[in-house]
């Protein structure tokens, strides 16, 4: 019995982990594999290997403009949301003020609301105001749902800082501004970078809220969704896979850099 439980605790978890990760990666692997399919019209059945889709990722109408929109919207929304969210995180992490509970609730609620409700209510207000739906309404919506995630990520980083570091800077005659510029901000920066990456990936992959507020503008997830019925070109798989590997590369590079910085200290 004892050896059995020991085997259970030592190996079953590993077997389980392998199964879990397999489940997570099956659709990704499928998407990647079918990006090499020599397809005609619809990419449903395997017809043979080809590099063509990777050589001409923009070879189908509308794919690359949609990707371009997604990247532009993602960068803009990330930029605005990261600034607004970081400011809020500093206010929450560094100052005592009245209205703290209200602020926390206002930050928490968008994360706890179904995307559908966020998208639908924004559409209602845009319609009531007679605003034209399109690029800018998508940016507005994305900034709105990204802010909370930025606040939470950056706030966690600020809370994990050792307050003695800032005290030390002050003891060494740095004024408040210099302490912030040379001590606090560099220490919080990795948190801000992480928050920005999170915001970009949320914006880039968003479908439900975007679908409500996009008008005639097409982003990459919208493109994939609308073309799924008629048969998706393998170029969509190429772009999906490329984004996957690119993001993986950025995260791994970020980890290596932060490790080197730590060793350097």
């Amino acid at each position: 019995m004892k050896t059995l439980t020991r085997w259970f605790s030592r190996n079953l978890i590993r077997v389980y982990m392998v199964l879990g990760f397999t489940y997570l990666f099956i659709p990704v692997a499928y998407t990647f594999a079918f990006s090499f399919n020599d397809y005609i019209k619809s990419n449903l059945v395997w017809r043979g290997f080809t590099w063509n889709n990777w050589k001409q990722p923009c070879g189908v109408l509308d794919v690359c403009p949609a990707l371009g929109n997604s990247i532009k919207i993602g960068l803009l929304a990330t930029f605005i949301a990261t600034i607004l969210g970081t400011l809020i995180a500093f206010a929450l992490g560094r100052y005592a003020f009245k209205g703290r509970a209200v602020t926390n609730t206002l930050i928490f609620l968008p994360m706890a609301s179904p995307e559908l409700v966020l998208g639908a209510s924004l559409l209602t207000i845009f319609l009531n105001l007679g605003m034209n739906l399109g690029f800018w309404t998508i940016v507005i919506a994305h900034v709105m749902f990204c802010i909370s995630f930025v606040v939470v990520t950056v706030k966690a980083r600020i809370a994990s800082l050792d307050p003695r570091l800032e005290q030390a800077a002050m003891d060494l005659y740095a004024d408040e501004r210099e302490t912030f510029r040379r001590v606090t901000f560099p220490l919080v920066a990795p948190g801000i970078a992480g928050a920005a990456l999170l915001a970009f990936s949320l914006s880039f992959d968003d479908f439900i809220i975007t679908n409500f507020n996009s008008g005639t503008t097409i982003t990459f997830p919208l493109y994939v969704y609308t073309h799924a019925e008629r048969g998706l070109p393998a170029q969509a798989n190429v772009i999906g896979s490329a984004m996957f590997f690119l993001a993986l590369l950025i995260v791994v590079a970020g980890q290596i850099v932060s490790k080197k910085v730590k060793v350097g200290k």
Partner: peptide, 17 residues
């Protein structure tokens, strides 16, 4: 990182997969 990684390959694409 691997747990979060599938997120980067579009959610709609994975559902279609």
């Amino acid at each position: 990182v691997l747990v979060v990684a599938p997120f980067f390959c579009s959610f709609i694409l994975r559902t279609i997969a």
